[in-house]
Amino acid sequence: MRTPRSLIVTLYGAYGRPPDGAPFAVSELIRLLHAVGVDAPSVRSCVSRLKRRGLLVAARAADGSAGYALSPDARQLLDDGDRRIYRRRGPRLSDGWVLAVFSVPEAERNKRHLLRSRLARLGFGTAAPGVWIAPAGLYEETRHTLQRLGLAPYVDLFRGEHLGFAATREAVARWWDLAAVARLHHEFLELHEPVLRDWEASGDADEAPRPQTAYRDYLLALDSWRQLPYADPGLPPELLPGDWPGGRSAEVFDRLHERLRDAGERYVRP
Results as ranks from 00 to 15, higher is better:
Ser45Ala: 15
Ala74Phe: 05
Leu56Val: 03
Ser65Phe: 02
Gly54Pro: 01
Val43Lys: 11
Cys46Tyr: 10
Leu70Cys: 06
Tyr68Thr: 07
Arg52Trp: 02
Tyr68Lys: 05
Asp80Ala: 11
Gly37Gln: 15
Arg49His: 09
Asp80Arg: 07
Leu50Tyr: 07
Val47Tyr: 03
Pro72Ser: 01
Val47Asn: 05
Ala62Met: 02
Gly67Glu: 03
Leu56Ala: 05
Gly64Cys: 08
Ser71Phe: 07
Leu32Gln: 14
Asp63Pro: 05
Arg52Ile: 00
Tyr68His: 14
Ala35Thr: 15
Arg44Cys: 02
Pro72Phe: 01
Pro72Thr: 01
Leu33Ala: 11
Ala58Trp: 02
Pro72Val: 00
Ser65Gly: 10
His34Ala: 15
Ala61Asn: 03
Ala61Gln: 03
Arg44His: 08
Ala74Ile: 01
Ala69His: 00
Ser65Asp: 10
Ala61Met: 00
Gln76Ser: 02
Val38His: 12
Ser65Tyr: 02
Gly67Met: 07
Pro41Arg: 13
Ala61Glu: 01
Ala62Glu: 11
Asp63Thr: 08
Ala59Pro: 00
Pro41Ile: 11
Leu50Lys: 08
Leu33Lys: 12
Ala62Leu: 09
Val36Gly: 15
Arg44Val: 09
Ser48Glu: 11
His34Pro: 03
Ser65Trp: 04
Asp73Met: 05
Ala62Val: 05
Asp80Ser: 12
Asp79Ser: 08
Ala59Glu: 12
Gly64Pro: 08
Leu32His: 13
Arg60Gly: 04
Lys51Cys: 04
Gln76Leu: 08
Leu50Gly: 04
Gly64Ser: 10
Ala58Thr: 07
Gly54Trp: 01
Ser45Glu: 14
Arg75Thr: 02
Ala58Pro: 04
Val38Gly: 13
Gly67Cys: 04
Arg44Thr: 07
Arg53Tyr: 08
Gly67His: 05
Arg49Pro: 00
Ala69Cys: 02
Leu77Asp: 10
Leu70His: 06
Lys51Trp: 03
Asp63Tyr: 06
Arg75His: 04
Arg53Glu: 15
Val43Ala: 13
Leu56Ile: 04
Asp73Leu: 08
Ser48Tyr: 10
Pro72Glu: 03
His34Cys: 09
Gly64Phe: 09
Asp39Lys: 14
Lys51Gln: 11
Ser45Tyr: 13
Asp79Val: 11
Arg75Ala: 06
Asp80Leu: 08
Asp39Val: 13
Ala35His: 14
Gly37Arg: 15
Arg52Pro: 00
Pro41Gly: 13
Gly37Ser: 15
Asp73Arg: 12
Ala59Lys: 10
Asp39Phe: 10
Leu78Val: 06
Leu56Arg: 04
Ala61Trp: 02
Arg31Gln: 10
Lys51Gly: 07
Asp63Gly: 10
Pro72Tyr: 02
Val57Cys: 02
Ala62Asp: 09
Arg52His: 04
Ser48Val: 04
Ser42Asn: 12
Lys51Ile: 03
Val47Thr: 13
Arg44Asn: 05
Leu33Met: 15
Val38Gln: 14
Ala62Arg: 11
